[in-house]
Design a binder for these strands. Structure first.
Lengths: 210, 210
DNA sequence: GATCGCTGGATTGTTGAACAATCCAGCAGA
DNA sequence: TCTGCTGGATTGTTCAACAATCCAGCGATC
């Protein structure tokens, strides 16, 4: 019954194109062009731009235009610093059986994707896994922060840079983390997760100009 | 040399009025009224609204209007969950001597305000203290998250609800946390900070409809 | 008297057009 | 090669309009 506003739909469409890699980092988005393409007014596009700029997916340069966000020096470390803070904190506090079950579900989703050789599915499963960990904390604010961070990662570390080799490690690692969580070994789970995040940061830094 | 855009200045003005308590939670902000008061166009006001809504300072209800954000059930716990995650994580990772000196400076600022019986100054000093702790991590993203959280707290827990009795505790506590940080006892510092945040959440919950 | 439905005014959502300010590529001239 | 200008394109902002939606008030009905 609920109809999102036009500006919201434009933002959603742009988010989709960003996640899908249709809009690559650094690309310029011209207001008039987007407005015409989507059949909406320029003012409406501006509102959508403002929203996405607040999510760090777009970068607004006054009087020059808006551009798809690019990785600056230190951004990788920055993103992982946030992830370490909120993911480790969330898992160390445990969570309700329901929330833990959601983490388990994400692990199984990853296994199924691996069996099916579904590379894209593997990426989604991993994001669901880490999203489910933050969801343990039952905090709306943490959830939206994490959702934005994951959107940034989709944008920066796009499928193109991801291969099966990349995913191989953490399939078993997620399993270990999840098991520790289920058995109440929260410190252990936190340590494993922290180690994973540190290693993941190193890998990403090595690939991109860290 | 840099001249912020009109929309940015409107947002800044509204942020100011929110922090100052001139706009109280639940108040309705009518586009036309704000536009006329500030001598700008309605579209510009809308852009500012979008920005502040993204910061959770305003709440947008489609077709009804924008309202100053109000505390919903669970919001206090939510805010403190975020603070626990990022503040404790930041202090446990330590920081450069410069950043640690900034924490010390905030402690001293608090002491001076206490001597001068400057209640307002005490509040500011406390915010600077916790901001400086997050700044230890040298993460732009964590810093902006913290800044938004602090802005929310200024809005909700306004001066009116703050009295000298409230500030008495943490003057010495901040001193202890800072000392532990300076001497490299990071675990100790983290534990102290965590204890403070838990107690502070309890206090706030007791005051407001927790 | 309470509930229902209507209506009119106010406000939001969105558009289109206009214009000043700014930027930038390309070109002329030193 | 460098400098400085210039014209076109794009952004920033305003204004006016209109459809869609909401809401308070009011009357009609049971």
């Amino acid at each position: 019954m609920k109809v999102p506003s036009v500006a919201e739909r434009v933002a959603e469409e742009l988010r989709y194109q960003l996640a899908e890699g249709f809009l690559v980092p650094g690309a310029k988005l011209t207001e008039a062009t987007i407005a015409e393409d989507l059949g909406v007014s320029r003012n409406t596009v501006r509102e959508a731009f403002a929203e996405l700029a607040g999510e760090r997916l777009l970068l607004r340069q006054p009087n020059k235009g808006v551009f798809v966000a690019t990785l600056e020096a230190g951004d990788i470390h920055d993103v992982y610093t946030v992830r370490r803070a909120i993911e480790v904190s969330s898992i160390r506090a445990g969570g309700s059986p329901d929330r833990i079950a959601a983490v388990r579900a994400a692990v199984e989703e990853g296994k199924r994707a691996a069996e099916a050789n579904d590379n894209e599915g593997l990426g989604s499963a991993n994001q669901h896994f880490h999203g489910a960990i933050v969801a343990l904390a039952e905090s709306n604010r943490l959830n939206t922060i994490m959702a934005q961070i994951l959107a940034e990662m989709r944008l920066y570390f796009h499928k193109a840079t991801m291969n099966a080799h990349f995913y191989s490690d953490w399939l078993t690692e997620n399993e270990q983390i999840c098991s520790a969580l289920e058995s109440g070994q929260l410190e252990e789970a936190g340590d494993l997760l922290l180690a994973y995040l540190n290693r993941s940061e190193q890998q990403q830094s090595a690939i991109h100009g860290g």
